[in-house]
Nucleic acid binder design. Sequence first.
DNA 1: AAAAACTAAATTATAGATAATTTTCTGCCG
DNA 2: CGGCAGAAAATTATCTATAATTTAGTTTTT
Lengths: 222, 222
Amino acid sequence: MDKQRDDTIASRISRALAERIISGALTPGERLRQDHIAEEFGASHVPVREAFRLLEAQGLAVSEPRRGFRVAAFDLKEVREVAEMRAVLEVLALRHAIPHLTAAILDRAEAATVAADTSRDVRSWEAANRAFHRLILEPCGMPRLLVSIDDLHAASARFLFSAWRSSWEARTDHDHRAILAALREGRGDEAAKILERHVGWIGRTPVKTAAGEMREAFLIVG
Amino acid sequence: MDKQRDDTIASRISRALAERIISGALTPGERLRQDHIAEEFGASHVPVREAFRLLEAQGLAVSEPRRGFRVAAFDLKEVREVAEMRAVLEVLALRHAIPHLTAAILDRAEAATVAADTSRDVRSWEAANRAFHRLILEPCGMPRLLVSIDDLHAASARFLFSAWRSSWEARTDHDHRAILAALREGRGDEAAKILERHVGWIGRTPVKTAAGEMREAFLIVG
DNA sequence: AAAAACTAAATTATAGATAATTTTCTGCCG
DNA sequence: CGGCAGAAAATTATCTATAATTTAGTTTTT
């Protein structure tokens, strides 16, 4: 097929595995066996090990010396940690992005919000949500910060998919709209404040299961 | 000598190279030639490549597909970015650490401050400064956050060493003392505020060179 | 049935080979 | 004399094969 990609085999394997970890196809704590994965991708173990290191850097895998790599576990404590880091880093990015935001960017962010509200499954909601955040933060022009935020989004998405594997219902995202309204009207501080609360909010919430029962679930807002 | 370390060859090479990059022995933009480094460490190229990936994760090296790895460049813009990320992340860590701070920890942090004030060279000042920050932040119990902060400290140190290679004079660090005083008296918010300004502050300042001339230099406070 | 010993599997590392690509050198030509 | 083209050298990224070490699992022994 397309062998002439600009990137290396290691990064291609890394992306493929990241997808599986985030989607939940590879479960937390599962071992990543280099020879099996090498065979599956028709590669040798060298690029596979490099791919593992890339995943480790994103916090999706952990290395235990002489015992190989496993898919990173995650508990509620870690999810909270990720959410709080996202909150402060996204606020920082937004403050730097504000002077460079244009009406065109805000229009595209609004389109992403509409796409999120009308999505039929978690996957597309997550993609639209991520697009919204990316759009309003990217103009900050701080590459290292944006990479960190991306990695934290990946960790959030993992949790999201594990919590909402089957049942899912899109809700209108009032926070996104409030952030956009504030940005359009030049109330930057308020936009930052809403974003901080929006991203940092994690808690228990009652959820109706497919069977019609109510149960408690953890929820990341966005 | 000591072959029976608990860690892998890759991580040992990575630490050794990190040391050189931070200290400035390897200059920004310099190429990292895997075969040369493999030979120097008496290893093969596989662990060397893994070491490069580890450095990449810390932001000390960058990979250009088919062109190998180079020491990460850094300009003033990036230094500012690192300082601002450190400011918000350290404040977050401090807020979580405060409930777990003990008098014993604060005493050790004070000792680190004294050590910084009396250091005779940049290296020991940096080590003492880093120890101060580590001590008051570690009790936050957020491992991912602490790793991020450590990586940012490494990037700061690089800049520090490049700016102050020859002349150096220790100054009394009033910010550290003010932070400690606020923490001891239970004024957590004020401690966080000082820390944020302390870490985030970067600017030009007049510096007296060894030759007695005045010139402008960039400065990270700590 | 618990402890010890053996076995199997996997990770970590080495070595050498190869294709592709980049860098460097060199010499020719305008 | 400077710049471009092409040749030569170096380097990366990969594979294959293999050894050493460690973990994990199974069997044997007491």
